[in-house]
Design a protein around this nucleic acid. Structure first.
Length: 425
RNA sequence: GGAGGGGUGGCUGAGUGGCCGAAAGCACUGGUCUUGAAAACCAGCGAGGGGCGACCCUCCGAGAGUUCGAAUCUCUCCCCCUCCGCCA
């Protein structure tokens, strides 16, 4: 959520920035809501003040042994008037809240203009593209011998799931271990284990609700529970409604979780293979930092994600998302895109974002500022490092040898119990 | 699942209808003292919102109700603890 106070001061500036994101901010509607809020709020507070003052005087009269009947009569229909104004005010507040919550975060000034991913701007490239003396297969063909079984998954559940067997399942697990170990030992993140089922407040805090309810898997139970779409939700919400001491910052967590996405509205896209699944594993980096530090933190966090790709020797590039491709809560996002020989293109494997205080305001994640002694909103960031399923795909496609085998990257060998070549059968 | 006990400021904890946004202690901040520190003493110290301001409003797990007036009484829900049952 944006800061309403600064929004009030300059709605036109916000409108101009939001246009970069392809969002039409209705300043007239906002100003109308604001005007109504102002008058209803002051009227409500005036009446409440009157009631408080008079009630207090009744108390005093009673304590002094005086007759309170005339005072009680004087309060008269005050309660009814207050109720009427209050309910009007509450209705307006709900409307106002819904409006304010639906406004996306402002993009940073460095975010390029553009409408979709075609307008994203490449900022760097790493690694030479592999050259094959054969026609490289994609991961679906490579796994067709039985290691990747999409039909079995369809039977068990439905489309967009996978069953992995043997060495491929092990390589998938090795990737998780390697990523967690790298971030904890080299990049100074604390590992956390969290619930995979979250409540509505948590999804609201990070911005998935109320606007993106259809993307979530909702659990049919008495409680309002959802399958976590990313570790960002449970991990960031550890600090919801907390006031942290400044000495605890920055908070840096790494967390491995499965992620569940309904993928509503992507029916025709990436239907082949493991690229877009309802369930996939991800290792996520989450940081909560002092407001002045978040831009540096975004660069660092993005490089922590790059480090995994460099260690795995997978060619990749970094793009900065244009306004139209930027997410609802993010002020700026870098995507890392790995080279997939089977598709002959770069595909997203990580997304690293700075949310500034947008999420922190929704979830009231604060720290005590040493300068003022007052609680102030933190800045939140997160990034995938990396999406495990897509990393597995990238390794299979980049490390294939043309003879139905996949070589294990050097850094993963310690995790593979001596296995350094996968025979896909 | 059954029985009982609880949820109060950063933390501990008192408060059963008005003088309570809330005692006391801890923590924290400033001061006195000290070569310095500790101790002691003095003072300050919850959060959110509105208003140019004087000030005002809201918040004692959440929501609804009773009342002129609710942290306090009633109802519903959520969460925590103890015991029993069941269980990885």
């Amino acid at each position: 959520m944006l800061d309403l106070r600064s929004l009030r001061q300059n709605p036109q500036a916000a409108k101009a920035l939001l246009k970069i994101k392809g969002y039409d901010f209705d300043t007239l509607r906002f100003e109308e809501l604001e005007t109504q809020r102002k008058s209803l709020q002051s009227l409500t507070e005036e009446l409440r003040n009157e009631r408080n003052v008079k009630s207090k005087s009744i108390g005093k009269a009673k304590a002094a042994g005086e007759d309170i009947a005339p005072l009680v009569a004087e309060v008269g229909d005050l309660g009814e008037r207050l109720d009427a104004v209050e309910s009007k005010f509450h209705r307006l507040q709900e409307e106002y809240q819904a409006f304010a919550q639906s406004v996306p975060n402002l993009p940073d000034a460095s975010v390029p203009a553009g409408s979709d991913e075609a307008d994203n701007v490449e900022v760097d490239r790493w690694g030479a593209l592999p050259e094959f003396n054969f026609e490289p297969k994609d991961h679906v063909d490579l796994g067709a011998g039985g290691m990747l079984d999409f039909e079995a998954a369809t039977k068990i559940t439905g489309s967009r799931f996978v069953v992995m067997h043997g060495a491929v399942a092990r390589l998938h697990r090795a990737l998780i271990q390697f990523m967690l170990d790298t971030h904890t030992s080299k990049h100074d993140y604390e590992e956390v284990y969290v619930p995979y089922i979250v409540n509505a407040d948590s999804l609201y805090g990070t911005g998935q609700l109320p606007k993106f309810a259809e993307d979530q898997f909702r659990i049919d139970s008495d409680a309002d529970f959802y399958l976590a779409p990313t570790a960002e939700v449970p991990v960031t919400n550890i600090y919801r409604d907390e006031i942290l001491e400044a000495g605890r910052l920055p908070i840096k967590h790494v967390c491995h979780t499965p992620c569940f996405r309904s993928e509503a509205g992507s029916y025709g896209r990436d239907t082949r293979g493991m690229i877009r699944q309802h369930q996939f594993e991800k290792v996520e980096l989450v940081q909560l930092v002092e407001p002045g530090r978040s831009w540096d933190a975004l660069e660092e966090l993005t490089d922590h994600a790059r480090e995994i790709l460099r260690a795995l020797e997978l060619p990749f590039r970094t793009v900065v998302l244009c306004g139209g491709d930027l997410g609802f809560s993010a002020a700026k996002t870098y995507d890392l895109e790995v080279w997939l020989p089977g598709q002959n293109q770069y595909r997203e494997i990580s997304s690293c974002s700075n949310f500034l205080d947008f999420q922190a305001r929704r979830m009231q994640a604060r720290y005590r500022s040493p300068e003022t002694g007052k609680p102030e909103l933190l800045h939140t960031l997160n990034g995938s490092a990396l999406a495990v399923g897509r990393t597995l795909v990238a390794i299979m496609e980049n490390y294939q040898d043309g003879d139905g085998r996949v070589h294990v990257p050097d850094v993963l060998k310690p995790y593979m119990a001596g296995l350094d070549v996968l025979d896909l059968g």
